[in-house]
Amino acid sequence: MTPTSSPAAPAKRQLTVPTVADLAAEGKSPEILFWVGCAGAFDDRYKRVTRAFARILEHVGTNYAVLGLEESCTGDPAKRAGNEFLFQMQAMQNITTMNGYGIKKIVTACPHCFNTIKNEYPALGGEYEVIHHSTYLQQLINEGKVAVKGGESFKGRRITFHDSCYLGRANNIYEAPRDVLAALDADLVEMKRSRANGLCCGAGGAQMWKEPEPGKKDINIERTEEALATLGGAAAALDNLRGVETERPAPGQHPLQGSIIAVGCPFCMTMMSDGVKNKEQEGIVQVFDLAELVASAEGINA
């Protein structure tokens, strides 16, 4: 069930991801900086998201570049953990780099980087137009630059979207990711705790780097159980629609087969994937980022 390349488009092309330094050497600067983020650069699972998003940027012919080796942690985990000094050191360093290149617009697939650069860098001298990749993908779809056709079909597949705190409550972005998913023509189901009431995956506020405090349960398990119950409840509801033709799973297939938990954040990705594994559902339910779903539906994976 991994996103696969469209069989109809065998021709492929190798990408050389442009760095801002390369462009500067040619006297050019990118229209938009793709801020990859540490998870996007180093986490094996999220690297696939970074690659999917880079494919989309290439596919639509965006004038983009990455900072490459000149990118450094935004300082978000340090700030949330109380290390304001380290945060500001990181922020100043990144701002110096970006201002030096005259960066005006930034897109990132990480809500934490997004929030930090958008909201906390301006006071330190870094003013940019920052957009999260969910908004960017929504724009591409709305402008018709991405048709989300020609690749894998998500029609009728059950998808539930897990709101990232730093996209949702922190910045009031709830609709863009849902609009992107709606374009897939999938069967979108909402968890009870969604949008402003969404439950955190458990990784924010630097929890990603530490063991949780003693308690009854891990937060990601609580959230994964909710996601699985939602997908399962939707499956049961479909089964109960007597006389209505629905795309039922083949006989003998697990009712959740092919269901997807969609995320828009590297930490949510880790936490939800771990949760699904903990519940031993990883062969049945998958966790995908929005960019992976769009690239897959567009058939540009190679």
Binding site: L15, V17, R51, Q90, A302
Partner: peptide, 26 residues
Amino acid sequence: IENNGAPWAFSPSDRLNWADELYVAE
């Protein structure tokens, strides 16, 4: 973060490794 510019212990020189062998379907 102080030493590698990332919250995990990865070498900063590996930061662009994700872009290796990256293809897009035409």
